[in-house]
């Protein structure tokens, strides 16, 4: 870490475009650029289909084969676009991790939770062993105790009865518990960046709040940066202090949460802010519709 100059951001996305299907098809992500420095937490907000997941998967290098990615994604100065699977795999799950939207299907149904969590350790054992040398403990210190570390991380994300959870199969856990397991897996190797793609959308509201709180605590504990995808401003504001707004594949607005909430510049953001404040509409008055926010605008809406 010490060999990376202070000025180089953790993640620098520049001119990134993602196109599904034929090369000529209309891109899902269009020429976006942003940087993310160590420890920063950015929300990425936008309506369904605006390209949020495509952006996340492009950064993780997890887009399916045959999807065209253009532009640059630099990780601590090194280019990730076009990086080979081997090098990328050393990064994924270690320095850069991800939590997905649907916890019900995100774990292998045929393997116990504990073994799946332990894989996160095992996969990055070689790098860990190097660390061990640096910290003056034998590698066996890190290789061994896998069970304790698995139980430890499950406890850290607030799961009860960790022994039983570790020995359970995914179908024996609730959605919220599964998502906490996945968050634990994402935090286990003390990553520098955690990408969360709508991690609470599939959970019911009471569980949502708990999971967000535990995610927030977990991110703070390891000091990881976070790119938090959502289409809900309220959810983003619980984890992030800064936010980018995506609309039809472009980032149309960015800034601190207060700034964006206080003076939304783009019509889509204005709509978003207004719908978030829908409870404030006096009874009897008509609720705002999306057309209201486009009044007087003709740019921005492109096909």
């Amino acid at each position: 870490m010490s060999d990376v100059p202070e000025a180089v951001p953790l993640l620098a996305v520049d001119g990134l475009s993602v196109t599904f299907g034929r090369a000529g098809a209309s891109p899902a992500v269009r020429d976006i650029a942003f940087t993310l420095s160590s420890g920063e937490r950015w929300g990425l907000i936008g309506e369904s289909g605006s390209g949020k997941s495509a952006t996340a998967l492009a950064i993780m290098g997890l887009l399916p084969e045959g999807v065209h990615v253009h532009g640059s994604v630099r990780w601590r100065g090194g280019e990730l676009v076009g990086l080979g699977d081997a090098a990328y795999s050393r990064l994924r799950g270690d320095a850069m991790t991800m939590v997905f939207q649907e916890p019900m299907t995100a774990l292998d149904p045929t393997m116990t939770v504990g073994r799946q969590v332990a894989e996160v350790l095992r996969l990055h054992y070689v790098r860990r062993a190097a660390d061990a040398q640096r910290y003056g403990v034998g590698p066996e210190r890190i290789r061994g105790h896998a069970r304790e570390r698995v139980l430890g991380v499950l406890a850290e994300v607030g799961l009860p009865d960790v022994e039983r959870i570790a020995d359970s199969f995914p179908h024996q856990l609730s959605g919220g518990q599964r998502q906490l397991v996945l968050i634990g897996m994402a935090l286990m190797n003390s990553p520098l960046l955690v990408i969360c793609d709508e991690p609470t959308t599939a959970l019911d509201v009471t569980v949502q709040a708990t999971v967000l709180r535990l995610l927030d605590a977990g991110l703070s504990a390891v000091g990881a940066a976070c790119l938090f995808i959502s289409h809900d401003l309220a959810v983003v504001s619980q984890v992030c202090s800064q936010v980018m707004v995506m609309y039809q594949g472009r980032i149309v607005e960015r800034g601190s949460l207060a700034q964006v909430l206080g003076a939304p510049a783009h019509p889509y953001t204005r709509g978003l802010v207004a719908t978030a404040a829908i409870d404030a509409v006096p009874p009897g008055e008509r609720l705002p519709v999306i057309g209201d926010f486009w009044a007087g605008e003709d740019g921005g809406r492109d096909g």
């Binding site: 699977d85 795999s89 990064l91 299907t105 995100a106 894989e119 996969l123």
Partner: peptide, 26 residues
């Protein structure tokens, strides 16, 4: 195409190994 395969890749399994480890039984 399953979600758990994407999870496996996201924790650092390489493509083939992910299929071997999490695809075989399924």
């Amino acid at each position: 195409d399953q979600d758990y395969m994407r999870t496996a890749r996201s924790i650092g399994w390489r493509r083939r190994r992910a299929v071997w480890r999490h695809g075989l039984r399924n």
